[in-house]
Simulated assay, not measured.
Amino acid sequence: MSDATDTPSDPSNPFSFPPELVEAQKAAAEAYEALHRYQATLPWSRVPHDGWEAPTPAHGGALVGPQSSRPATQGWTSEQGAEYDRLWEACRTTSAAVSLHPHWATFSGADQFEARQALKRMPGALPAIKPVEQDDMATAV
């Protein structure tokens, strides 16, 4: 399959995206990025939790599989929960706008799949990458 073209008016070409579809994809990508950036600042549990320590092996043996531990947390504040819910709703809404766009109704199968993947990689549909600040990561615990 070819990459997206610069002629968004060709309804027979699945890679000829209408400008509003490209904008919708960009909005969806930005919403997803904002949600994940915000998640990085939140405690690991939405509700208060005592946390846990990774188990120690019995009789000096080795434990199989990944081991994890989590510190105790007070959970999220009501403001943090409201902001997370707002960002998650933005992800759902913008993703639905892309998925339900009339452009996709004309195509099916491999053409539609390849075109959807190409749309996600279009320069005009990608958000600007912002580095995660170290301070954001410090507040995540």
Rank of each mutant, 00 (worst) to 15 (best):
30 E>F: 00
101 H>G: 02
122 M>S: 03
60 G>K: 02
112 Q>R: 15
4 A>T: 01
76 W>C: 06
5 T>H: 08
141 V>A: 15
123 P>Y: 04
119 L>C: 03
87 L>Y: 03
44 W>Q: 08
95 S>V: 00
37 R>D: 09
72 A>D: 08
7 T>Q: 13
3 D>W: 13
121 R>H: 13
90 A>E: 12
11 P>I: 11
106 T>G: 13
59 H>T: 09
81 G>M: 07
41 T>D: 02
127 P>D: 03
110 A>S: 11
7 T>G: 08
139 T>Y: 00
27 A>W: 03
102 P>A: 13
47 V>S: 13
139 T>A: 12
28 A>K: 00
5 T>S: 14
25 Q>E: 09
74 Q>K: 12
129 I>F: 09
99 S>L: 06
102 P>R: 11
106 T>I: 05
132 V>L: 15
73 T>M: 02
48 P>C: 04
97 A>D: 11
54 A>R: 10
71 P>I: 11
21 L>I: 00
11 P>R: 10
97 A>R: 11
62 A>G: 11
92 R>S: 08
73 T>R: 01
16 S>V: 00
52 W>I: 03
9 S>R: 09
55 P>C: 05
69 S>M: 01
35 L>Q: 09
94 T>Y: 04
38 Y>A: 07
13 N>K: 01
40 A>T: 08
76 W>G: 03
6 D>G: 13
78 S>W: 08
29 A>Q: 15
79 E>Y: 05
54 A>L: 02
138 A>W: 13
72 A>F: 00
123 P>C: 06
97 A>S: 13
34 A>S: 13
65 G>S: 08
92 R>A: 07
83 E>N: 12
108 S>L: 06
36 H>Q: 14
130 K>L: 14
12 S>W: 06
106 T>E: 10
130 K>N: 09
87 L>S: 02
72 A>K: 15
45 S>N: 13
80 Q>D: 05
27 A>Y: 01
100 L>G: 08
121 R>M: 11
23 E>P: 00
24 A>I: 05
23 E>Q: 14
19 P>Q: 11
42 L>I: 07
126 L>V: 01
36 H>K: 13
74 Q>E: 12
54 A>C: 04
61 G>W: 08
13 N>W: 01
42 L>N: 06
46 R>C: 10
75 G>M: 01
50 D>A: 15
116 R>F: 01
38 Y>K: 07
87 L>K: 05
56 T>N: 07
22 V>C: 02
37 R>P: 01
41 T>G: 10
95 S>Y: 04
59 H>K: 15
13 N>Y: 05
109 G>W: 02
113 F>E: 14
74 Q>G: 13
127 P>Q: 04
111 D>H: 11
38 Y>F: 15
111 D>G: 10
51 G>E: 06
123 P>L: 06
15 F>E: 02
129 I>V: 14
74 Q>R: 12
29 A>P: 05
32 Y>V: 14
4 A>K: 01
121 R>D: 08
112 Q>A: 15
118 A>M: 10
52 W>L: 02
137 M>Q: 14
82 A>H: 09
139 T>E: 08
28 A>D: 01
22 V>M: 07
77 T>R: 07
51 G>S: 09
86 R>M: 07
108 S>E: 13
60 G>T: 08
